[in-house]
Write a protein that binds this DNA or RNA. Structure first.
Lengths: 136, 136
DNA sequence: TATGCAGCCTGTAGCCACTACAGGGTCAAG
DNA sequence: CTTGACCCTGTAGTGGCTACAGGCTGCATA
């Protein structure tokens, strides 16, 4: 299959596929006489693996390790578990951060009465150093 | 105050302060005879505003608009409210996304029994197209 | 007076994970 | 024989910094 078909089959941008090849995440495929890339099922599976991993937020380097494990079924898979567990922790941290941030934004947004910028609580709150809570 | 003091006072990297000046977020300060940047309280307040906004996840362009409003107290502040509300929505969406992602990661991580990579459920799950749920 | 070192300056390049061209070649249909 | 979809390489841009390289200034100490 040509790059456009692979792109449609996996929902991956053509430029991204070439990018993955350039950084060594996908092996260089065979070429047609016209120098077009020619992919097979293995490439497709590998790209799906990469996309699914990216969708889950793994970094390229993490995916490189995971692919490496998947290429060597005889190795111990605890490394894969470690990567996934650490990533899960990071996601949980990020959620906690964003939740705190959402709370502060909600406090700020709720205060706008639609007057002039000079009296605006939103702008005022941003100028504060975060101690607006107990300040008045 | 010199750039190092401003850096300590606001918890902002020196390179970042110069970066903000370069992109026009902070006005160029006066210079000493030795060509050192010389900041005043106004600069400090503005930088605090920027840092606080960045901590809340506003983009540079959004901060530019917010600063513009804060520079013109006679304008209507509904624009500030609009920016903050939209940003809040984005944060909420992000949290929802990450929560879904966390759930999937938890499912994946919980399945590793520590065997060989060839039998690893983590790697297997990543290779799937996300239909692993009802598949077996 | 010499010397060392912290701090400042400019300018450029790197980070991540793409994305978007420019400028060209290839191929099948009409 | 032309049109238009598709493919190629190579380079530069995105956001928001961060990290140098290579050089200047200012102050304390020997």
């Amino acid at each position: 299959m040509k790059i456009g078909e692979l792109s449609r089959a996996t929902g991956t941008n053509i430029e991204t596929i070439r990018y993955y090849e350039r950084i060594g995440l996908l092996p260089p495929p065979a070429r047609t006489d016209a120098n077009y890339r020619s992919y097979d099922g293995g490439h497709r599976a590998r790209l799906s693996f990469v996309r699914h991993s990216r969708d889950l937020g793994f970094t390229i380097e993490e995916i490189r390790s995971l692919l490496d494990l998947s290429d060597h079924p005889d190795r111990d898979c605890s490394e894969a578990d470690r990567i996934a567990t650490r990533h899960l922790q990071q996601v949980e941290e990020k959620i906690a951060q964003l939740s705190a941030l959402r709370d502060e934004l909600q406090r700020i947004v709720g205060r706008c009465r639609g007057g002039l910028a000079g009296d605006c609580r939103v702008i005022e709150a941003l100028g504060d150093h975060g101690q607006c809570e107990g300040a008045h």
